[in-house]
Amino acid sequence: MIEVSHCDFIYNQGKSQVKVYDDFNLTIEQGESIVLIGPSGCGKSTLLYLLSGLQKPTAGKIQILGDSVKGTRQKTAFILQEYGLFPWLTVEQNVSLGLRVRHTVKRSYKPLVEEMIQKMGLGEVKHNFPSQLSGGQRQRVALARALTLQPDLLLMDEPLSALDALTRERLQGLLLEIWQEQKLTTVLVTHSIEEAVFLGSRILVLLDGRPTKVVGEITNPLVGKSGYRQTEEFFQKTSYVRSLLERGGLDESAR
């Protein structure tokens, strides 16, 4: 589905150049749920921006379903950090904006938007503005907006990081449901080890090395099984991810 081949990404910081990716390769199969985990500034978000087409790799190429990514793509939905909602639009207007900028006629998107608002439990607040919503509601607006685009690839940049524990668990469940139901390919960035193991069918542990290194790749076949969070397997996976992150931390101090 997604083929990242020999990608470099360099950005200019003042006069110096920072090499975030050097000859980076990654293959993602259709229907996978990839989680990227790693310390702040390790280039996780950059990878999402590259996949979304908002940023272009300095060298190399990215292909999705055989087509090179040149700019944003119709079937990719991207939920940015802090949800990327527009404070001047109501919930309903935010949810329909993706379809509006794609020049969909109102008559045809209205039912879809309404369906998504109901599905995400936003019916009562659909005429409210984002500032009047709780963090969890805002995240659900962002999800609703992404899903109205009927994407085949959903990118999420720390979607749940600002939420309280219970809301967070509830939304993790919702994300899992959406992923299983719609057979979406998802790529999610997180700081939380627990979240990574709960949501990722494959977990990539990234470390900031300038360029970024993938220090671990964990397949997680049991993801989505009910009660997974309470199993021994789940505990082992989280410990393993933690050890990879910690070992990276040691490397850091040794350098």
Partner: peptide, 13 residues
């Protein structure tokens, strides 16, 4: 810039 990115990611020109 995130607000602008958000619109661009939706396909906005």
């Amino acid at each position: 810039s995130e607000t602008i990115s958000s619109l661009r990611s939706l396909g906005g020109n």
